[in-house]
Design a protein around this nucleic acid. Structure first.
Lengths: 187, 187, 187, 187
DNA sequence: TATGAATGAGGCTTCATTCAT
DNA sequence: AATGAATGAAGCCTCATTCAT
């Protein structure tokens, strides 16, 4: 399934580099090194291609996020793992986030795919927070409120770093991670 | 300039509701209740229209963000004002944020307009944080790290509320706001 | 009728300078220093304007061609006058010829206006040649053959001078004029 | 390249029959029996199409003009060949001349293409005249003056015949050709 | 399976013309 | 009489998609 991947990769790169406009099937084909008609052997049409790219990337991201995960880890270790994995993932492949956000802003897709993202790919994340609440370690707040204050800072910070083009050192990054961990603790 | 505004409004609504693809000059004109050609009396071309919409919205957002601002307020009062204004603004007119994020993802525009957004419209925000640092009230961290942990949670939370379609009560909202204020304090 | 002339002049200049494309009613109006709508007080529509410009110019050219004409002149004097007037006219206002040729190449106009040009404006020219033939001075050839060999060389030469951008001296010009006179003589 | 030729032909015909205004890409496509978009596989845009049509025709004309040419021929034989070829070419395919003149009147194109026409395609013509001068057979006049009096009469006469719609006999045509030959001779 | 020429719907934009002021 | 904002038809061009090879 070499070509299918080539197409998805080309689409990801072009989407991130050139935005929604200026990304034609011909350009995707050229970038993937195949003929325009060939795309239609692997994807029904452009919308399907975009939609499948979205699922592809979401799956990648979910995998990266939970890399090294083990039920043996303590809650804090799990958090630091999640936060750091996410932060690193954005910095290493900013295109992925760019594409996800782009697709989220396509109302048509957003409706259909948002469910997939949350339920299928990120169920473990919700589960992690629920456990923290249940164990009385985290504040007993709305789970989205907790995520906003903690996990999401990894994404927000990474995005800012890319957008503003500054280079923080390790210590600064860990300060944010640790602060976001502290803030959701009960005590 | 009644018609100019009608065009900008139509564009904003369509952009937010239908994304980049669902927006043609003809549709904008129809939505604005004018003829297609009339748009070109007010905007040189589509790119200019989009770009001016961006500036228009950025200005609106900046105004909303600082509504009620006064140098008499304490740092904490200022923060709560900023956080709440921002949170409310996103919830009241989610289209604005949707459009801003959309345009940020257009590589061409992003480069040109990002500067405008930060420097011109949000200088006071940076200034607020700098003062907090200088006065020894905030952690002496990278300013973007502080913003990520505090101000940005207003946006992240409001977005999540809209996307997940849940309705938090006032108390829950204030918990997040206050937590985000606490976390950047030195003591 | 100051404005009418301004419009005709603007049209002539623009037609000659920019060709068929890129000559809009708005541009004509701007060049003439009036509002776009005003043109329609003087000309029914664009086609009429162009058509009237054609007649206007043709009349000017006919006048120029016969300037100094007198029945007292000898046939040779008449010829030299006609030839020289025509040659000078083209060189002095190349736009006129450009416009005439342009309009001649508009098939629609050409059909309608060609008659006007020949019959009304240039009848005396045909008459001149007919007299030459009748008096046994010119070859008894098809009148258009005679004109081609003689009068038309004034136009062809002037055009060439403009197009190739060279500057002949008086003697050279007169050589052509005289040769074209000689060639149609019987003896 | 069957279709490319079909497009060029359709363009030539439409240009000659309907002038500049009556020619849209859609109409060209319909006339050529293809879809509108197909034109753009062969020509970058309308301007390029027109420009390439010009070169195409100029090449055709140059070939026709020198058909039967041989260095063995005497100067007079060469002249009669050139004159007759040109005269016949205009009468046989008046569209060619119409298109060439049209394009010459497009200021943009004219500048760029005039050089091509003269230098590349009609160098041999200039050369012919130069030889006549050098051999002391032709008057020692400006070369353009000689051409105006001789070669150009073939074009002028043919055009007149088409425009005025009369039918000269062979003898009349040869009279003009021979007169135009005589007039440039020294003796 | 892969190609890429061909299609034609649809988008952006221009511009002749109208009409309220 | 003059203006110029507004209109909308029409033109150029792009591009998703098809299909014969």
């Amino acid at each position: 399934m070499d070509k299918r991947d080539a197409i998805l990769n080309a689409t990801k790169t072009l989407l991130a580099e050139r935005g929604f406009y200026g990304i034609s099937m011909k350009l995707i084909a050229d970038t993937a090194g195949i003929a325009a008609g060939t795309i239609y052997r692997y994807f029904e049409n452009k919308e399907t291609l975009i939609s499948e790219l979205y699922r592809h990337i979401t799956r990648e991201v979910a995998q990266t996020t939970f890399k090294g995960w083990s039920d043996q880890l303590s809650l804090e270790e799990k958090y630091k793992l999640l936060w750091r994995n996410t932060f690193d993932a954005v910095r290493e492949d900013p295109q992925r986030l760019a594409v996800i956000e782009m697709l989220f802003l396509q109302p048509r897709l957003a409706r259909e795919e948002a469910a997939f993202c949350d339920n299928e790919a990120f169920y473990p994340l919700m589960d992690f927070y629920q456990q923290g609440i249940d164990q009385g370690v985290f504040h007993d707040w709305q789970i989205h409120a907790l995520i906003t204050l903690s996990f999401d800072t990894a994404i927000t910070l990474a995005k800012k770093i890319i957008r503003k083009r500054f280079t923080p050192d390790e210590m600064q990054i860990n300060q944010v991670r640790d602060a976001s961990w502290l803030i959701i603790q009960k005590s």
